[in-house]
Structures are given as structure tokens and as C-alpha cells.
Amino acid sequence: MKSTAEIQEKSINKIDLKWRFIHWRSAILYLLPSIILFSVFLFYPLGKTLYLSFFLTDQQGNANVFVGLENFQYILQAESFHKSIKATILFVLYTVPTGVIISLFLALLANEKIRGVGIFRTIYSSTMGISVAASAVVWLFIFHPSMGILNQLITSIGGTSIDWLLHPDWALVSVSITTIWMNIGFSFLILLGGLQNIDDHLYESAKISGASYFYQLRRITIPMLSPTLFFVITVSLINAFQTFGQVDILTQGGPSESTNLIVYSIYREAFVNYQFGTASAQSIFLFICILIVTILQFKFGERKVHYQ
């Protein structure tokens, strides 16, 4: 009696294992396309970067001499890298809050049920369709010291013209303005989508209770929008850390390294100075920074977010 029961149990276990293997195999098959893509474009470059950050390299970027953590030591002591970090932090502080607030404001405007609001929605989200290079060139003209429309406006109302891109104090502000303008389209679109997901009945109910527009905004709209806001803030933050295109076209990191944001600094280190080792070390540093900021944000920000 006992033996038959044992045999049965064993065979069940065997069948169980077989099925488990089949399930595992099909799971891997489903994952395979993503695994291949991620490996080629993400995991391999990341691994290679990490590897290079421990070496001195030749001009072709081949690893030559293993130096351990010396690259990291070097960049953390280098004054230009300190400057670059400072510029990046300032840049993030300039662009992220301002960009999100402006997009939220525009999204609130465009969410009203007015005739012709579709035109405004298109206009507000249109910067999404313009490439970084094209918009940077447009802004290059706007910022032009003598021909630029900005300075012409200022002088026409009696102000003194500003060296937008040429003065170390103004250059970062100018790049920030360009970046905010470029990012508004994306943030606007996501926030508008979030706003339109909020049930109209909530506002009707609040209206009957006698809540004013700003009371509704504070008690209903913002809390209901919090997941979307959280997403937009996270994405803009990461984007701001990774800004490159507009810096390259507008200022090339100058004047006197005031707009030398980290990614631009990495680019210069690698492809102008051919220091692939220290460039890789900077990349790893940036990766860790973004990782920490994002983790912190999820940890502290998410508590205040309401998910439905």
C-alpha cells in the first residue's frame, strides 16, 4: 500500500518537474526578443563602460593599463568636474520645477471645454515634434546679441541688451530656457492626459458643495493628478541630467565651462581629449547619481502619490 502511494507521489513529482521545465522554457522564449535587444544596446555598453572606467586607454578606446579606482579619484579631484557637477545641479533646479509648473498651467488651461481648444492643445504640444538640433538653432538666433529678437525687444523698451550665450552668468539660464521650452510639449501632453482621466462627476459634486476653482484644484485636481505629476517629474529629472544636444549647439560647454553639463563633459573627455577611461568613470558617476535620485524620489515622493 505504502509503496504504491510512494510511486504515485514520485511520478507526480516527475510530471510536475517536466511541466515546470516546459513553462520555464516558454517563458524564456517569450522574453528572448527583449533580452537580445537589451543585451546589445544596454547591458553590453553598460558593462563595457564599467570595464573601461578601471583602465587607461589608447586613442582608439582600447583598454591599456589597469589602474583600479584611479580614474574615479582623478575626476573627483578635478576642478573642471566639480564645476560640471555644480552646473548640472543648477541646471536641474532651473529646468525641472519651472518646466513642470508651466506645463501644468498650460494643461489646466487646455483642459477647459472651450470652442477651439484643440488648436491650443496642438500648439502647446507641438514642441514635442521639433528635434533638439532644430529648436536649438532657432534659439541660437533668438539669443543672438545684436540680431536676436530677445535683445531687440529689450532694447526697444529701453533696457540694455544681454549677452545671453556669451556671459558666464547668463549662459546656463539661456540653455535652461531653451530646455524648458523644448520639454513643455511632452510634459503638457502627459499632464493633459492625466487631467482628462479625472472623472467629471467629482467636479460636479464639488461644484454643488460650493467649492471654488482653486479649492477644487487643491483638493481634487492635484491629488488626483499626483501619479502623472510624479511620472513627469521623474522623467524630466532624468532628461535634465542627460542634456546634451542644446549645450553642444548653443554654447559648446562655454563660456568658461559655465554650461559644461556632465554629459557634455563626458563627450568632451572621450571624443575631444580621447580620455575614454575618465569619460567612462564620469558616466558611471552620472549613472549612480541618477539612480540615487530616482530611488530617493520613489521612496519619499511616492508616499504622497495617490494611485487609483
Binding site: D199, H201, L202, E204, S205, K207, S209, R219, I220, H306
Partner: peptide, 19 residues
Amino acid sequence: PSKRQLSMVFQNYALYPHM
């Protein structure tokens, strides 16, 4: 609506989900 001295119950209740 607020000046009409009335209250309303909606079909989907319209409760504020975050409160």
C-alpha cells in the same frame, strides 16, 4: 449649483478616491 441649497447623489457616487 452651490447657491441652490441642494445636495446630490450621483449614479457612480462620485466619491473622491484619494480621500
